[in-house]
């Protein structure tokens, strides 16, 4: 059965390059210029997304009503997905748990882009991911026309794959500020906590003066932020500290060796 999802996974594979844990580089987009069709933050930055009703098992609300209570992390999924959707929710959940701030700084809205999905299906998805009844994770559906508008407004796309009875689609996490404007984009199923931290910072109203672009095979990046924990060390930073540390050790060693000579030399001190 798994072979069915192969196509979706291949796509995801090229969207995400989960490097070793804690590396913080977001989806590596195969280094080359981005292929058209892969949503890129630059094109949608600060655009307002259209309002849409949100139906959950418990209530009916709307995106802008949810935004009144604070910024939203927003993503589109579908419950029959055998590819990226569930892993992404899982990855997001673990990143969010590491970073904190959920409920105070922002909440998470997971909407289905599949008109066949009912609020029950979304509730089931929440249950599968252990987020059932979580006050700050909102799993819901919306109307078919709203789906079309939302998908267009964030450069998202869906490509039905009749052979595999699946829908190919990118994995995108979108940061919305209180005005419903797109603040940041994260592409890929694997949510790097360091990148997510920047999104959260920005949603909270702090300026992030620079961010890394998707790159291939960069192992030694330098500095990474974690929202509440400040600077995070990684291999690049270790390389930067190396000269100082080795020099310290080397100097101590040279003077330690010299001690022997100092004792034996008559003129020594």
């Amino acid at each position: 059965m798994r072979a069915r999802f192969f196509c979706t996974l291949t796509l995801i594979g090229c969207l995400t390059m989960p490097l070793a844990a804690g590396k913080g580089t977001s989806a590596g987009l195969a280094g080359q210029p981005l292929k058209p069709g892969i949503p890129r933050e630059d094109f949608y930055i600060f655009r307002k997304i259209p309002d849409a009703p949100v139906f959950t098992l418990e209530r009916q609300t709307s995106i802008y009503r949810l935004l009144e209570k604070g910024p939203l992390l927003f993503t589109l999924v579908y419950t029959r997905c055998n590819g990226v959707c569930y892993p992404m929710i899982r990855s997001l959940r673990s990143a969010v748990e590491r970073l904190g701030g959920l409920g105070t700084d922002y909440r998470i809205l997971v909407l289905s882009f599949d008109p066949r999905d009912e609020p029950e299906d979304m509730a089931a998805m929440a249950r599968v991911e252990g987020l059932s009844g979580h006050p700050h994770w909102i799993f819901g559906t919306t109307g078919p026309e709203n789906i079309r508008q939302l998908v267009a407004s964030v450069g998202y796309w869906r490509q039905p794959d009749s052979l595999k009875q699946q829908v190919n689609h990118p994995a995108v996490l979108i940061g919305l500020n209180r005005n419903g404007q797109i603040v940041r984009f994260l592409v890929g199923a694997s949510i790097a906590p360091a990148r997510l931290a920047e999104v959260i910072k920005e949603m909270r109203g702090e300026f992030v003066p620079s961010y890394p672009l998707p790159r291939k095979n960069v192992i030694f990046s330098c500095f990474q932020y974690q929202a509440d924990k400040g600077l995070k060390l990684n291999w690049g930073f270790a390389l930067l500290l190396m000269p100082g540390v080795v020099t310290l050790g080397g100097s101590l060693w040279i003077f330690h060796r010299g001690a022997h000579q100092r004792r034996s030399a008559p003129g020594g001190f």
């Binding site: 100097s251 101590l252 040279i254 060796r257 000579q261 100092r262 003129g267 020594g268 001190f269």
Partner: peptide
């Protein structure tokens, strides 16, 4: 390194 060695042969760090 040699200069440091020379200094270390007479003075402690």
């Amino acid at each position: 390194v040699d200069y440091l060695r020379a200094i270390a042969s007479r003075y402690s760090l």
